[in-house]
Each structure stands twice: as structure tokens, then as C-alpha cells.
Write a protein that binds this DNA or RNA. Structure first.
Length: 481
DNA sequence: TTTTGAGTTGTTCGA
DNA sequence: GTCGAACAACTCAAA
């Protein structure tokens, strides 16, 4: 064991709410004789939330509670504050007479600005600020082309990523090894009730979404048993085929290295594990894309697509948001996000394609709706996904890839099991018509109690017509700078 | 420098 | 019902 070089350090938790395999925490404990831990409920972020019932805030609050308990078990504990992080961190660092603040790197534009401000404030007090890679396997400048450039196409990025992967990248950071270096927390800084933060309980528990490290590990254990089937099962929203770990990835209640280790261990010869690992690589990919191309957060990754003049019909947008487009797969998917804050990945693609290429609405409207409503919302992945669907992003495939909502529905929800779960009005519609109920002859509509236009909306647009309109819309900007 | 091969998740049309 | 071609042409990354 090395001798600590610092006396007192502060470790700042952000999107890494766990006490195991935590790179920054490990380095803080290794470097300092005494480490205090803090989590700040940042007013900068919380005050901007209009809705006071927010599953994400509740999830964080729950996870922080479990984190505090885990740290106490290790001999430490958590200082919890409700403040502006930019001021609170330097202030706390001074209070505890810290020599340095340690944290894990956050790559989002707003986080980068916040951390710069904190670094500056700390520097003025002669306090160090050290950040570590923890959120990703490979960060911004690690996976580069042969001439040192950054990748903007996924497949070569993935190949280079896999080539670089070794035991070092996958190793765990055993926090418990330096447990003797945890400082005892001060009792007045204990976790406050959710109400004190200005928030209320949501239906998180009722939805079966459990917060914290223990819940994440339980999900992983369960998923690893199903991972062999992942490659095909992941596309069917009515099937339990995916890991459901996205929210834990968002808040770091499980280490990305732990997930990659699980996938990598099974990867050779296991198509499911390979496919899932590939999803983790996508996550790294979009993190580095946004870091190197920050303009993509607000505009098209390929600037020429900013020239598209979106019709942006507000009534159609409302129909999309409120799950009354008349396309069952779209409406069921939108009900899923509205009721649970989650949407199956296949459905995210289908509704995104529908919003941009059938309703001809700016992808940023949809991106914002997802940002407001997804429990697992992550700027880089959400932005990358929307730009992919809108054909304005990294994907080099042509813009005429337009999902047919009926075909997708038939392929990925063949018996309408998912549709019926969220649209009980369509319960009695035969499988043959569940994907396009407007095709039901009027007498049959009467018979199964679903009169189109009365019990379920007529389609707000005609796909074939809108497809051509989308092609024309994108075609207009073709070849222009 | 030039060339070559390829690009997450698709759809439609016509044989 | 199944299958291959067309959708059009560009950019990326490596050879």
C-alpha cells in the first residue's frame, strides 16, 4: 500500500452513485489520509425542473440513501447538501480544510462548464481538482484513427475499441482496499427528506424500478442469465429481452466496467453478449461524439441538414406526445414513456422515425420530449439516437431509410401483445388488424367494440403520403452547402 | 496521393 | 411469399 501524499481530500459524487469499483473514489482514498464524501442536490438542475414529481430525482434520492449506508459500512459516510454545486463544493472543501477535490469526469457540455468554474474557484484557494475516467470504458481521446483523428463512423470506432480493450480497461477499482482512509461524516449534513428538496414521491416503486447499487446488480445477474437470447429478444418490446440497466448506467449505480466484464467474459462465441457489448460501445461512441462535436447538442451533426425547413405542425406534435396518432405501435410506445418514463429501444427508433419522417417535425422537439420524460435520459445517447433517426447524424446511411410503422409493428410485435398492454381499447381487435385497425371493416369495428374515430383515433397522417413528403423535404436540401 | 470498401437497427418494387 | 435490386451518392478510414 502506498503512502498517501495528501492529508485531506473531498470526493464529490455526481453520476457515479456507488461505493464499489469507483475510479475517482479509489484514487481519492489512495491519495489522501482522510477522505470526505459529498453529494450535492444541485439547485442549478433541480430548480429548472417544472414538474415536482420526477422519477429521476426520486431515483437519485433513493440511490444516495443507499450510497450513504454503503459508505457507513466502510467506515465513512456521505455529506449531503442542497445548494448550487459551483459554490457548495469550494465552500465545503474550505470547511473541511481539503487539499484537493476528487471526482469522476462528466463529459456533457453543461457539466464541463460547471467543473471549469469549480476548478477555478478551488484554484484560487490553492485546492487541487482531480478528475478521473469512470463513466466510460474509453473516453474522448483514447480511441483514435491511425492518423490520430477522432472517429465519426461507428463500425471502425467499434473495431478499434475492441482491439484496444484489455484487462487494464476492465479492472475494478477496489474502494474497500483503502477503507481506513474514510473520514467520519458530520451528522448535520445527513440526507434530507425528498420533500425538503421540493419534490414528491412518484410511481417509481409501483413501476418496480428500484434504485441503488443492489438493485442494479440484481438486474445484471438476471440479465446475464438471458444474455444468450439478447441479440434477437432485444427487438421485441413485449418480451423481456433487454437488460433494463439504462437508468443505472445514467446514474452510475453500477460500474460500466462491471457490465463490460460480464459481457466480455461471455463474448467469444456468444452472439448475445457480443451484441450487448456493442451497445456499451455505442454508449462510449456517442459520449466522444458529443465531446468532440458539441454543436451537435443544439443542431445537426451534419450542418447541411440544418437547412431543412420542418413543417412542425403543433397539432400533430400533440397527437404524438399524447398517444393519439391512430398508429397503435406509436401510441402504445408513447403511453409507455408517459406512464413509466421508459420506452423500449426498438420503439424509440420507431416513434423517432415517425415524428421526423411521417409527421415532419424537427427532431429536436422529440429529443426534448425524451429529455423531459425518460428516466434514463442521457444527453449524448439521446442526441445521437435522435440524429440517427432523423438522418442528420453520424450514420452514413441514406435519408430514405424511413420506418414503416405498420411493418415494424408486424415484425416486432406480431400478436400485438405490447400494443394491447398499453391500448386496452384495442383488446378485441384481431391480430391481423391490430397494427392498422382502420383497415377493419365497419361491421367488424362494431363487433369488437372499437369504432375508429370514436373509441380509437383514425390515423393522423397517411404513411405512404408522408414518406414521399419526407423524401421531398430532405431532397430539397440535397447538394446545397 | 489515390483507391477501395463499407456504412446498426429499412422499405418498396417487381420478378 | 420470397428475393434481389434500387433507393443516390457521399464520407470515412484504411490500404
Amino acid at each position: 500500500m502506498t503512502t498517501p501524499t495528501l492529508d485531506i481530500a473531498l470526493f464529490w459524487f455526481r453520476r457515479d452513485l456507488r461505493a464499489t469499483d469507483n475510479a475517482g473514489l479509489f484514487h481519492a482514498l489512495k491519495s489522501a489520509r482522510q477522505v470526505h464524501c459529498v453529494f450535492v442536490f444541485d439547485r442549478e438542475i433541480l430548480d429548472a425542473l417544472a414538474e415536482k414529481r420526477d422519477r429521476r430525482v426520486e431515483f437519485i434520492w433513493e440511490s444516495v440513501g443507499e450510497l450513504d449506508a454503503a459508505l457507513k459500512k466502510l467506515g465513512g459516510g456521505l455529506i449531503v447538501r442542497h445548494a448550487h454545486a459551483v459554490e457548495a463544493i469550494p465552500q465545503l472543501a474550505l470547511e473541511i480544510k481539503a487539499d484537493a477535490v476528487f471526482t469522476n469526469e462528466d463529459y456533457e457540455p453543461q457539466a464541463i462548464a460547471r467543473d471549469l468554474a469549480v476548478r477555478d474557484a478551488l484554484m484560487r484557494c490553492d485546492i487541487g481538482f482531480h478528475t478521473f475516467k469512470d463513466t466510460v470504458i474509453f473516453e474522448k481521446d483514447e480511441v483514435l484513427t491511425q492518423v490520430g483523428g477522432t472517429y465519426s463512423v461507428f463500425t471502425p470506432y467499434k473495431n478499434a475499441w475492441l482491439k484496444m480493450l484489455d484487462d487494464f480497461q476492465l479492472k475494478s477499482y477496489p474502494v474497500e482496499k483503502y477503507r481506513a482512509h474514510f473520514a467520519k461524516p458530520v451528522s448535520k449534513d445527513a440526507l434530507m427528506p425528498l420533500e425538503t428538496l421540493g419534490f414528491e414521491r412518484t410511481n417509481l416503486k409501483a413501476l418496480g424500478i428500484d434504485a441503488g447499487e443492489s438493485a442494479a446488480r440484481k438486474l445484471l445477474t438476471d440479465f446475464v442469465k438471458r444474455i444468450d437470447d439478447y441479440k434477437t429478444a432485444r427487438d421485441f418490446p413485449a418480451v423481456k429481452g433487454v437488460s433494463y440497466l439504462s437508468i443505472h448506467n445514467r446514474f452510475g449505480t453500477i460500474s460500466i466496467r462491471e457490465l463490460a466484464r460480464a459481457a466480455h467474459a461471455k463474448s467469444p462465441g456468444n452472439a448475445g453478449a457480443q451484441t450487448w457489448l456493442s451497445e456499451l460501445i455505442w454508449r462510449d461512441f456517442y459520449f466522444q461524439i458529443l465531446y468532440h462535436h458539441p454543436h451537435a447538442a443544439k443542431s445537426a451533426f451534419r450542418p447541411e441538414y440544418d437547412a431543412i425547413v420542418w413543417p412542425n405542425d403543433e397539432a400533430l406534435f400533440s397527437a404524438w406526445c399524447e398517444a393519439r396518432t391512430g398508429y397503435p405501435i406509436i401510441d402504445a410506445a408513447m403511453r409507455q414513456i408517459n406512464e413509466t418514463g421508459y420506452m423500449h429501444n426498438r420503439l424509440r427508433m420507431i416513434v423517432a422515425s415517425f415524428l421526423t419522417k411521417d409527421l415532419l417535425i424537427d427532431w429536436r422537439w422529440g429529443e426534448q420530449y425524451f429529455a423531459d420524460n425518460l428516466n434514463d435520459f442521457d444527453l449524448s445517447a439521446n442526441n445521437g439516437g435522435w440524429q440517427w433517426a432523423a438522418s442528420t447524424g453520424c450514420d452514413a446511411q441514406p435519408y430514405f431509410r424511413i420506418f414503416n410503422p405498420v411493418t415494424q409493428s408486424e415484425r416486432f410485435d406480431p400478436h400485438g401483445k405490447f400494443i394491447r398492454r398499453y391500448l386496452p381499447a384495442l383488446k378485441a381487435v384481431p391480430d391481423k388488424f391490430i397494427h392498422a385497425p382502420w383497415m377493419l371493416p365497419p361491421l367488424d369495428q362494431q363487433a369488437c367494440g372499437v369504432v375508429i374515430g370514436r373509441d380509437y383515433p383514425a390515423p393522423v397522417v397517411d404513411h405512404a403520403t408522408q414518406r414521399l413528403a419526407a423524401l421531398a423535404l430532405y431532397g430539397k436540401i440535397k447538394g446545397k452547402p
